[in-house]
């Protein structure tokens, strides 16, 4: 469903700040794969996601989504294939617009925008139905400006928006990192449910080792712009935090940086 071949990404080339964020990254995601992507700060996780989404172009290599070579496509064109949720709850929604307008914008993802009315009454019913499943009481707040909602509610909405028009690949960029632990747990559960119900191919970046182990069928660890570990199947199911740390150590020849990953 998603194939990445030998991707390199260099920031600020030719300057003292030159930084190679991705070094020869290759990844083949099968349909229905739910990959959790973990790594320390600066490992290249977010850069990889942004390269897939087209926020940055790649310097070498190719990216292929559902059989289409998207390497040269702009961000907004690739959006036809992708559902995205960002770390910052403010990023995923238009805060000055009302809830139903945000959902309507997402329902039309990847489709040409014409002069038809922006929201139909039929859609509103669908939105109410879907929002009621979130269990956050949002089904009664279709006419509320999104900026009046909490960070957790906004992430839940962004998640719904990303899956409304079923994407080929769902990209989650530490989408619970800015939430308090309780809200984060709710949003993660919701994530798993939506991914499961829609059979979505999902790539989820996280800082949290336990979450990386608990969710998904495959775990990838990045360090210094490379993929170091790729654990799947039964092996993934039996994985523990200690084992993951040990395996990272032996694979990379150094200890995993204990920044936020262990604390959380």
């Amino acid at each position: 469903m998603l194939r990445i071949d030998g991707v390199y990404k260099v920031f600020n080339p030719g300057t003292v700040n030159q930084k190679t964020a991705l070094r020869n990254v290759s990844l083949d995601m099968k349909e229905g794969d739910f990959i959790t992507l973990i790594g320390g700060n600066g490992a290249g996780k977010s850069t990889l996601l942004n390269c897939i989404a087209g926020v940055y172009g790649v310097d070498k290599g190719s990216i292929n989504i559902a059989g289409v070579d998207v390497t040269k496509l702009t961000e907004y064109k690739r959006a036809a294939f992708l559902g995205r949720v960002f770390q910052d709850p403010m990023m995923g929604t238009a805060s000055d617009m009302i809830l139903e307008e945000n959902l309507a914008l997402a329902l039309r993802r990847g489709k040409p925008r014409g002069l038809r009315w922006g929201i139909s009454n039929k859609e509103r019913e669908v939105y109410r139905e879907l929002l009621s499943h979130l269990g956050l009481g949002l089904e009664h707040r279709l006419n509320v400006k999104v900026k009046l909602l909490s960070g957790g509610q906004r992430q839940a909405i962004t998640l719904l928006m990303a899956t409304l028009n079923k994407p080929k690949v769902l990209l989650l960029d530490e989408h619970t990192a800015a939430l308090d632990p309780k809200t984060a747990a709710i949003v993660l559960d919701l994530t798993e449910r939506l991914v499961h119900e829609n059979g979505l191919t999902t790539l989820m970046v996280t800082h949290n080792m336990r979450d990386a182990i608990r969710y998904g069928n495959r775990l990838i660890m990045m360090h210094d712009g490379r993929i170091f570990l790729d654990i799947q199947g039964e092996e993934k199911k039996k994985l523990t935090v200690e084992e993951l740390l040990a395996r990272f150590g032996s694979a990379s020849g150094q200890e995993f940086s204990y920044d936020r990953a262990l604390l959380s």
């Binding site: 907004y76 064109k77 995923g92 929604t93 039309r108 928006m161």
Partner: peptide
């Protein structure tokens, strides 16, 4: 309207 409000979100929804 969304473009003036949050261009990041708008591009993620496939809008130029």
């Amino acid at each position: 309207r969304a473009t003036g409000n949050n261009p990041y979100m708008v591009r993620a929804q496939g809008i130029n």
